[in-house]
Amino acid sequence: MPVLFLLIIGAAAGFLATRFMRVEMGTLQTVMIGVAGALIGGMAIRLLLVASGAVAGMIGAVLGAMVVIWVVQKLRS
Rank of each mutant, 00 (worst) to 15 (best):
G57R: 06
M58P: 03
G37E: 07
R76T: 07
I8W: 14
F5N: 05
L47N: 02
A51E: 03
M25N: 08
A54N: 04
V67W: 08
V23Q: 09
L48M: 07
M21R: 15
I9P: 00
V3G: 08
W70Q: 05
I40F: 04
G64C: 05
I40Q: 01
E24H: 12
G26C: 01
I69L: 09
G10D: 07
L75M: 13
V35T: 01
G26D: 10
G60F: 00
R19F: 09
V67Q: 15
M25F: 10
I8Y: 05
F15Y: 15
I40M: 03
R19M: 13
A38V: 14
A36G: 03
A51P: 00
G42L: 06
S77E: 08
V71W: 15
A61P: 02
A51T: 05
R22C: 14
M21H: 12
A38L: 13
V72Q: 14
V35F: 03
A11C: 06
V71M: 14
A44E: 03
A56E: 09
A61K: 12
G26V: 04
V67R: 15
Q29E: 14
T18Q: 07
I9M: 07
L47W: 14
G41F: 04
V62E: 08
P2N: 13
S52L: 06
R76N: 02
A38E: 12
T18V: 10
M1C: 11
A51I: 00
P2Q: 10
L4K: 10
R76M: 13
V35S: 01
E24N: 14
G37S: 09
V55C: 05
V71N: 04
M58A: 13
S77H: 13
G34L: 08
M21E: 08
G10E: 11
L47K: 06
E24V: 11
A36C: 00
A65Y: 15
A11N: 14
M32T: 14
L39K: 02
M43P: 01
M32S: 11
A11P: 00
V67K: 15
V55G: 06
